[in-house]
């Protein structure tokens, strides 16, 4: 996984003056900005794996901001999208949120509001990326477990003691202890609490998947 240097804001607006002024304003708080005049060029060229947020004007020639939003969501782009509009009607606002916009701002927009919204969006994006990568790592580790170790893990998560697990699986407490030590090592868990917190959902998903 490539980790970008710092968050990048994608700004899409057909008006050069608006684009430049907003880019300048955003750069004053140390966020990097990439500006796009055309929605099609943006859709074709922006780096999807980067950390950041998308600031999208609703009203543009050729393709409306709302349909750009639709395409982004359909593609599974995870950067938060902030819609920017000249005349925000309730209807437009509702449609934007329904389509998956993270925020809806009206032009002209105050610096505090804009910058705070962007910073919040970036923070959320970073967190969700971290959560996702943690989840992915846990999944990879979980995949290394043997069938027996998964059974033992399921019973540990269910709250059974070694003795009870041994009885349930017709194993000696000693064997159970070996499995337990192995799976703690494979899952890189340092405590029972951490093990349960990180893997309970995976165990439940696995049990739900193979009833």
């Amino acid at each position: 996984m490539t980790t970008p240097l710092s968050p990048l804001i994608h700004l899409i607006d057909d008006d050069a003056a608006v684009r430049e002024s907003l880019a300048l304003l955003i750069s004053t708080v140390g966020l990097r900005v990439e500006t796009w005049a055309e929605p099609q060029a943006f859709l074709a060229g922006f780096a999807r794996e980067g950390i950041g947020a998308i600031l999208l004007d609703v009203r543009m020639p050729g393709i409306s901001g709302l349909s750009v939003l639709d395409q982004l969501i359909a593609e599974g782009v995870d950067q938060p999208v902030i819609m920017l509009t000249g005349h925000g009607t309730v209807d437009l606002c509702r449609r934007a949120f329904k389509a998956g916009a993270a925020e809806f701002l009206e032009k002209p927009v105050d610096d505090d509001q804009l910058l705070e919204t962007l910073q919040n969006a970036v923070r959320q994006h970073v967190q969700s990326r971290q959560r996702n990568s943690a989840d992915r790592a846990a999944q990879e580790r979980y995949a290394q477990l043997s069938e027996r170790e998964r059974e033992v893990l399921g019973l540990i998560v269910a709250g059974l003691t070694n003795k009870e697990i041994g009885r349930a699986l017709a194993l000696s407490p000693r064997t159970v202890e070996t499995h337990r030590a192995n799976l703690f090592a494979k899952l890189q868990a340092e405590s029972l609490a951490q093990l349960i917190r990180q893997y309970a959902s995976l165990v439940e998903a696995a049990e739900g998947g193979t009833p």
């Binding site: 008006d15 608006v18 907003l22 304003l25 927009v109």
Partner: peptide, 13 residues
Amino acid sequence: NQPLTAVLANTQA
């Protein structure tokens, strides 16, 4: 709105 947005953003920047 377009020029007003630019004015506001420029002055605040």
